[in-house]
Design a protein around this nucleic acid. Sequence first.
RNA 1: GGGCGCUUAGCUCAGCCUGGACAGAGUGUCUGGCUUCGGACCAGAUUGUCGCGGGUUCAAAUCCUGCAGCGCCCA
Length: 632
Amino acid sequence: MLRSIERALIDGLAGAVTEAGHDRTVDPSALELEDFDDDEKGEFSSAISFAIAADEGSNPMSVASSIADAHEAAGLPEGIGAVTVENGHINYHLDVETMARRTLSAIGDEAASYGAREHAAPETIIADVSSPNIAKPLHVGHLRNTILSDALMNVLEALGHDVARDNHLGDWGVQFGNLLHEYVEFGDEDAFEEDPIAHLLDLYQQFEQRDSMLEDVEAFEALTGSFEEAVAAERDHHTAAGKEWFARLEDGDEAAVERWERFREASIERFEAVYEELGVDFDLWIGESFYAREGWNDRIVDRALEEGVAMRAADGSAFIPIYPDEYEDAGDPERVDVDPSLARAREALDAAGNVEDADFDPFYIVKSDGSTVYGTRDLATIAYRIEEFDADRSVYVVASEQDHYFSQLFVAARKMGFTDLRLQHVNYGMISLPEGSMSTRGGQIVTVREVLDAARDRARDIVEEKGRGVDDDEVAVIARKIALATVKYGMVASNRGKDITFDIDEAVSLDGDTGPYVQYATTRAYSILDDAESVPEADAIDPGAFNDTDHRLIYHLGRYPLVLNLCEERYDAAPLARYLLDLAHVFNSFYHKNRVLDAESAAGERLALTAATAQVFENGLGLLGVDTLAEM
RNA sequence: GGGCGCUUAGCUCAGCCUGGACAGAGUGUCUGGCUUCGGACCAGAUUGUCGCGGGUUCAAAUCCUGCAGCGCCCA
């Protein structure tokens, strides 16, 4: 409703500007949506009078008045009750009765699909989400990724896109050769059965620590050179063995593949338990290994070399050269501008003598030992998504550490001739934990398991202390849902690009801007509705019966669809999370100021409004993956 | 050495992309509110060189630019 009024206002404003004798084009940015709280500003306002006055050398106040008069004479759009001029601004005021009637009937009619719509330009979207490496536990980074991408994809689906979530597992690469080697040499069957991921992580770290051991040794100059050499030789032996195991894996060697599959299956089994607890689901679990084992990587390499997009280096590696001026807009097929030929790279290489010093960035697709890398598999994934899925957009929900990598990948893809697909890196900032909030066990990673357990324990204490109408056997279930709300809000309430400090104490304290605050408001709405004998339909109420406090709530309910649009624009779920916090504030204030049940007037109207609010909470929290609670 | 990003109240963060009317929340601190639909709440008070300098503009937290600090990536 606000959206259609906004469009009508822009058209009307453009007409009024001309009618009042001013020469100025009016675009949508000329109109601003204001908060409902301010009587002076109205709900929509325009400052276009200042720009016109500056051009004409006239007074903004009189320009504004002339436009407002012209607009009023031509007729204001339906739903706008008045136009005023204040401080040179043109302010439009909603007709509150129309707003109430239209907003409440829209929510009543559309119910669970209020806010959702058919998209004018729907896309088929495939997104890399979560994407953990197998043989390692899920950590807080995966937590943010998984929760953000789940919410974002839910929103995109609600807005009419066709979305496939692909858990793009990191299940291929030389590190699994290393792991196979460690396992064969030092692995323990029983320990693996007991807790496969923990055991594999130990082996993995053991492999990696050989490097740091070497550094330690180098630090002690007192030690003899021969000891240093011995350590280096030991390290080299294991590195070579790891590479050999990965080569065996790539060749399909039975002993290698069989073990690797065990690692993969055990990891996935553990991951699935966590995902289920988080309440998230995926459409695809393709993983990097698929592209290696099904020949997609080889085809990418062949194609890149045959078409002269990639070049061989002296050491046998192959790369696609990328020039600094090509990065801009590579994600957008309509604006991308790259030169796939190698002429420029050859010149640069001649001038510089070697790849490192040349004036381009090499995007490697084959290493000197012939094995493939990340980039090869990501190019293969793009080819697959175009050929097998006919996707319009390939989305990568990956931490912003990878910004540079993805801008290179996108340029490389364009050079490969993959021009039909929109490529988008949805990056997000790092998560850190405040000092002392949780044990990080000597600098090791903080796992999703640890965060969830801590959140659940805190939530349980609070439910036991403050819960009302909660039976003892329900405490655990409710505590779990509250814990999830705290964690999800902690991950998604900040704009995705920003690093966040996740303070579990603050998140679970349930005071102020937290997930449980929104849950609490919803529970209060349910509680009122429960006590009502019946809730009137939206078209059976008198829209003139509401007061200012009611209007404020209605206005916020009407904003909901605009908020989803904003989420799509930014590819972020944070606007939705914050909107629901706002709505909870407004609703809490509403029922404190206004009696609902047995009110002297407008009882039925406020019940209908309460029902509509509960509906919007359900819809919005549902997209964020947060459960509502009848009791808490 | 090169590139990207961040810097707004004591703390955690919106607002910036698309410039506009006194810069907003939460938290903290202080005050008030339960015989009334659930006090995990509400009402009020308090808190700012919008990192620093320069520029563009009728108008800059917002756009451009230089610098500083922090983070990340590449080498």
